[in-house]
Design a protein around this nucleic acid. Structure first.
Lengths: 181, 181
DNA sequence: GATGATCCTTCGACAATCTAGCAACGTGGG
DNA sequence: CCCACGTTGCTAGATTGTCGAAGGATCATC
């Protein structure tokens, strides 16, 4: 499922951290060319997509429903109310699709419709306690592992990664804007 | 469409490249915390997803068809033959879906069915000349901009980014594997 | 050559999405 | 106060992309 068969580069990473003795690779890891780094970014994208596919399969859910759940859990952490309308905008689907989506999530016990405190037209969506637990279990300690990697970097390395990622965001943002309107 | 409203961090990047005078930020960009870097990665993911949505809309195509096209163009650069079966595996969809998919792409003039040189059961899929051009136009010089960012980094910075991305790949790969089989 | 595997297609079903239209509710000006 | 208009979520019907099952043609093997 788009995952294995290209492990070598990723797997080599930790093993090669022993300094090459001729060049001062401090604690920075192996040498990389620009092309290799871009290829690594591609590999990250693919690994991430594969992970989402696994999560989708594990929770028996389609992509949109999973995105909705993540949006709801995120909003819950910020104590934000989420109406169906908000979900429609966040997921870029029609309000009719959101109705169907919430029907599914409600039927599977992942979300509850609550009356909006100040607007009787609206519905407030609340993820179930089980949902939070299920997502955490499915993701394992993904965030912790990612944080550990980032926290292992020196300030200079963090700055380098920050610069790189910012550049990637800018590069990607200024693409495909040739659309009508 | 999930894109704007969070520009500050990305926008700040280039502007802040002037050294802060108290700490030696060589040519490394602004200081970053681990949390900020992970947030940047999330922003990259969202920007990338938004770009794909724009490309999809611009070429009037769904996600799968676009992935198929990218796969075909990539294979063409490597002089690899792609049968429908290969596409089914690469995209993780059924052979029936591939038939429908290729029907669509053929009808829209993006791909041609050619006889396989040595297997008369198979069909070799070849992207049209226009397809390559259209994709290039849609993506603009995305790859050039990304390459420019990477090539602007020092070897130490490249190594740092490589280490970070490898770590992210490993973190993501070892997630959600709690699935049956 | 016969037999089983592989490649693609067709068919019917289903899930997820869309648009259009509607009823309930909120908002602001006479 | 009330009325016109915008907003919110729901329903109905159509469309799209996917699947599984079955079948015909071809390949590979004994």
């Amino acid at each position: 499922m788009t995952d294995v068969r290209d492990a070598p580069v990723a797997a080599r990473t930790r093993a090669d951290e022993a300094p090459s003795a001729s060049e001062p690779w401090f604690e920075g890891g192996p040498a990389r060319t620009a092309a290799e780094v871009l290829d690594l970014l591609r590999r990250y994208r693919e690994a991430e997509a594969a992970m989402r596919a696994r999560a989708r399969s594990s929770m028996r859910m389609n992509e949109t429903d999973l995105r909705a759940l993540r949006h709801l859990l995120r909003a819950q952490r910020h104590d934000d109310l989420v109406r169906q309308r908000d979900l429609a905008e966040a997921l870029d689907i029609s309000s009719a699709s959101v109705t169907a989506l919430v029907d599914r999530l409600e039927r599977s016990g992942h979300v509850e419709r609550r009356p909006h405190p100040s607007d009787r037209r609206s519905v407030v969506l609340v993820p179930t306690a089980d949902t939070d637990r299920e997502v955490r279990e499915t993701l394992g300690d993904l965030h912790a592992r990612m944080a550990a990697v980032a926290e292992d970097l020196t300030p200079e390395q963090l700055a380098a990664v920050g610069r790189f990622l910012s550049g990637m965001v800018d590069a990607v943002r200024s693409t495909g804007a040739d659309e009508r309107a």
